[in-house]
């Protein structure tokens, strides 16, 4: 047998993953779309310099500016108070994307941790799963409302009203939406820990924490990614529900969900006011979903190979 003169060094797995990810057309398109959306909400307001909350102080002008159809001055028109809808979309997107991603990360972190602990350590299973059941059984909306009522002022006093509301909303959504991820992960871990490679790791003497990090977590990645992509959409909607009920961000503070709810009142006269934020939320969810799909394929060596 002729040996190759120079052997490849073991490569970093992440480069393989990236190479495979680029093969996935849908995922690349979705990544592009997501970056576009992110640029729209992050860079957009720096170019389109209209204050999203600007209401003309002169009542006559304000009334003439209300409910205008699209024009060069206001490409998406104006709302019932004469505010520029494009600017509101951009600012709203910042909050919605941030809330969606961070709340999803919080939920996935809690869910995965609890799921792995419950699945791997039999002693913790009963307790943690009853806790999960309890959270599932709680009526979430009243719980969220109570949380917001109780803690809104306390957090606002510590980190300022805007960041305070943001943190509170993100945490509240995260803490009330991890249960599904936890159940899925627990089921996967229960099956995985009986596989022989986990037994092999134990026979090598790998401690439990490294078995979890090295063998269990990479193998539960797929369901976690699915839960995560769905979680972003749910978080954006939940945030808008909270804002709608007057317990999220202040009413004049635009978010996509808020714009959607404001638009519903006038959906017959101005359907575009529902369509724009709705489209933005759908595109975000869709792109995140496809990115998750591509990532899942890229992370699976069996698919990566061909």
């Amino acid at each position: 047998m002729t040996d190759a003169p120079r052997l490849e060094k073991p490569r970093s797995q992440w480069r393989d993953v990236w190479v495979q990810f680029r093969q996935h057309r849908g995922a690349m398109a979705a990544l592009f779309l997501f970056l576009l959306l992110a640029a729209f909400v992050v860079v957009g307001p720096m170019i389109w310099r209209i204050d999203p909350n600007f209401i003309d102080p002169d009542p006559v002008k304000m009334i003439r500016l209300r409910n205008r159809p699209p024009s060069w001055d206001h490409p998406l028109g104006t709302d019932q108070l004469g505010r520029d809808i494009l600017a509101r979309m951009m600012f709203g997107g910042r909050i919605s994307l941030a809330v969606g991603t961070v709340a999803m990360l919080v939920a996935i972190f809690i869910g995965t941790t609890i799921g792995v602990l419950a699945g791997y350590f039999r002693r913790a299973d009963g307790l943690l799963m009853r806790l999960t059941d309890m959270f599932l059984a709680l009526p979430l909306l009243p719980l969220l409302l109570v949380m917001m009522m109780l803690f809104a002022e306390a957090t606002a006093a510590v980190v300022g009203p805007r960041l305070g509301t943001f943190l509170l909303i993100v945490l509240a959504i995260g803490v009330t939406s991890w249960m599904h991820a936890a159940r899925i992960v627990r089921g996967e871990v229960l099956a995985l820990k009986e596989r022989e490679f986990v037994l092999a790791a134990r026979s090598i003497g790998t401690p439990a924490r490294r078995i979890i990090l090295r063998h269990i977590l990479p193998n539960v990645l797929s369901p976690v990614l699915v839960a995560a992509t769905l979680g972003i959409a749910a978080a954006i909607i939940t945030e808008s529900v909270l804002s709608f009920l007057g317990l999220g961000f202040p009413p004049d503070f635009p978010t996509w969900g808020r714009l959607l709810y404001d638009g519903i009142d006038v959906i017959r006269t101005y359907p575009e006011r529902v369509i724009w934020p709705g489209l933005a939320i759908s595109l975000t969810v869709l792109s995140v979903n496809y990115i998750g799909d591509g990532l899942r394929d890229a992370l699976d060596p069996r698919i990566r190979g061909r």
């Binding site: 596989r195 022989e196 490679f197 090295r214 990479p218 193998n219 060596p301 069996r302």
Partner: peptide, 16 residues
């Protein structure tokens, strides 16, 4: 040390 029965199941599919 131990050598396992099912060589498919005893190797972590996500490791080289």
């Amino acid at each position: 040390q131990m050598v396992f029965q099912d060589p498919q199941a005893s190797l972590n599919p996500r490791m080289t």
